[in-house]
Design a protein around this nucleic acid. Structure first.
Lengths: 159, 159
DNA sequence: CTTGACCCTCTAGTCGCTATAGGTATTAAG
DNA sequence: CTTAATACCTATAGCGACTAGAGGGTCAAG
């Protein structure tokens, strides 16, 4: 149980890694990984060496997940966490980070849109038949058949 | 050089890996990598054990690069190459592959657009000041402040 | 007291390259 | 001819952000 020898009031305040993961929307492995790379502080352990967490950890992990959902890199998240930990500092840096990220997102959007348009075009122009006459294969074989100018996205369009 | 003991006509037909890379828009390392994973056949070697290529290799590598630029995975490219190698087969499979890829691209596009919108919103709503009152940090801390419904993209929005 | 769910560490695998180390080959200039 | 610059070779490790697996230990219920 969790009340074997607790501090007086608020017992039940510690949860295990599985519960933390559930409440913050990620997996236990990921939590351990985040601890390993220092995004989360090393959790205190119980007598059986298992990690115990409080609401603070839930909040921090939720913040991390959310920032990652927005596509911020782990390094960016690390900086955001540091900033969030210093509420009296000016938020210019947060702003800069967010704007830089937005710019990246927009660049990706542009490339991905170009790819979608070209894919759509080449699929529409294919009218069945055999591969020797397949427009899709033709376009892939010969860049000049593309409506786009340069290389579409640089192989990591989707990343 | 190069015509020491050549087959009669068309001497100069072989190029090295650097030239191949230049002509197809990727790096020598990548060419060797593609050979290693079997996307390109093992190139014939000259007496000094260096790879020699012909126009066929340029075409194949260009096809690969182009398909990768479209965001097809290496495995998908492998399938596309197999299909392109059999021009008399029906192009249904090519079609299917391309359509499945398009669907993925569109899904990513949707998620990325949602992320962009939310990022834009949160940046616009931040009016300077300190981090304690920063809207960007607030939104990252509390998913309920988002205008979007579910999780935005699943951490790999940008991938 | 046993079952089964949960948890632990450590290591390796994913994807698509890229970079490095430590060597050999080729080529152009002197 | 020698030399120096460049290109090439293999093999291995690294990137980011996890994920999966092996081989155990812990915990709570029945």
């Amino acid at each position: 149980m969790a009340d074997q020898n607790p501090p007086p009031a608020n017992a039940e305040q510690y949860i295990g890694i599985g519960e933390l993961a559930r409440q913050s929307g990620c997996k236990p492995e990921t939590v351990r990984y985040y601890e390993g790379i220092g995004l989360l502080p090393s959790a205190p352990r119980n007598e059986g060496n298992q990690r115990r967490y409080t609401a603070t950890a839930i909040r921090r992990l939720t913040f991390i997940r959310h920032a990652r959902d927005f596509g911020f890199s782990v390094e960016a998240v690390r900086e955001l966490l540091q900033m969030a930990d210093h509420p009296t500092m000016p938020c210019e840096e947060v702003d800069t980070l967010a704007k830089r990220h937005l710019a990246e997102v927009e660049a990706r959007l542009a490339r991905l849109t170009a790819v979608r348009d070209e894919l759509t075009r080449m699929i529409h122009q294919c009218e069945g038949g055999n591969i020797g006459h397949c427009h899709i294969i033709d376009v892939l074989s010969d860049h000049r058949l593309c409506h786009q100018a340069g290389p579409h996205g640089g192989a990591d369009v989707l990343r």
